[in-house]
Computed example of a mutant assay.
Amino acid sequence: MTTAAHDDEPQTEEQPRKKRFGSGSAPLLPEAGAAGAPLTAVIAIMSFLAVLAMASLLMVNRAASEWTSALRSEITVQVKGASPTEIDASVTEALRVLNDTEGVVEATVRSREDTTKLLEPWLGEGNAEVFLNIPAIIEVKADPTLRDNLDLLRNRLVAAAPGATIDDHTRWHDRLSGAARSGQAMALSIFMLVMGAACAISVFAARAGLAANHEIISVLHLVGATDNFIAAEVQRRFFILGLRGAVIGLVVALTALAFLALGMSARMGTDAFVPAFSLGGWVILWLVIAPIATCLVTAITARMTVLKTLAKQY
């Protein structure tokens, strides 16, 4: 009976490969304990609200810029008189003075029909022309240098047309600027509150994860794992959860804003007082800041919470 030469050789088994902590399909620490999916949903909601707050801030900034730029570049001359003939004569003299003034880009007289329509909401349709000598309105586009010193132009207008007065819209400019600053402060406050809520949620979730994995953390300490190593693992898991939630919240928010922009453009048209909101390239880049901030706040807060908690317990 013959035997192979290699029968007497010892049989060797394939040695299992060593895995590093946190590598492979199973993470070293579960995703925030047993609350991975709920935490992702909450972060998605926080990201959604943060994107809406950022969009509100951008919309207020755009509206304030358009409103104030129009007020800064225009002044209004109102011409009064005892009769339409006197008003027309004063308008002619006022236009002559305006056209001869350096810094006046353009002077346009609004028609009497347009001026009458401005008074109809308060006086009723057709009543203004019957009972009043409606003043003439001259819209003037002026350089900033002329707006800074209107005293000379005002004196020349009064001398040429005694019924002429100048309105540089300073009061409206101040009011709109104040309202814009209030809107910006409110939108920024909402954004900061959302970030604060994300911090609080991350703190509670990190503490819950440490409590749920207390035995695993104890074993890690026994084999020599440092607090920084454990905190880095928790930060990595929270970053993944935060990234998932941030992407979901961003997609939902952009979809809602796209429908909002379409609705505003369809209902308000081109003559809307509020500027239309559009999702351009720069707008989307600014909006992406909100979910990125939510994701980073969640991960960094989780790391700091773990380090502080481990320093007290071990």
Rank of each mutant, 00 (worst) to 15 (best):
A41Y: 03
M46W: 04
I45M: 15
S83K: 11
L49P: 05
V79T: 06
M46F: 13
A37E: 04
V60S: 05
A70V: 11
I87F: 07
V79W: 02
V91L: 00
V51Y: 01
S83M: 07
A50Q: 07
M46Y: 04
A89K: 09
T40L: 12
D100S: 11
G36C: 06
M59W: 14
G33T: 08
F48I: 00
N61V: 04
I43V: 08
A94N: 08
E102N: 11
V51K: 00
N99H: 13
T92I: 01
A64D: 14
A63W: 06
E86R: 00
I45Y: 07
L58C: 09
D88T: 10
P38L: 01
T92F: 01
T68I: 13
E74M: 05
I87C: 10
P84R: 13
S47T: 04
M59N: 04
M46S: 11
I75C: 09
E86S: 14
L95Y: 03
T76N: 09
A63L: 00
S65L: 12
G103K: 09
S56W: 05
E66H: 12
A41T: 08
A53G: 09
E66K: 13
D88S: 14
A41E: 00
T101F: 10
T92A: 15
L39D: 06
R96C: 00
E86I: 10
A64H: 03
A55N: 08
T76S: 15
A55G: 14
V79C: 10
M54L: 14
V51N: 01
I87Y: 07
T101A: 12
T68F: 04
A94Y: 08
A44C: 11
A32N: 15
D88Y: 03
S73K: 14
M54C: 07
I43Q: 00
V42T: 08
R72Y: 06
R96F: 05
V79M: 07
V105Y: 05
P38M: 02
L58V: 10
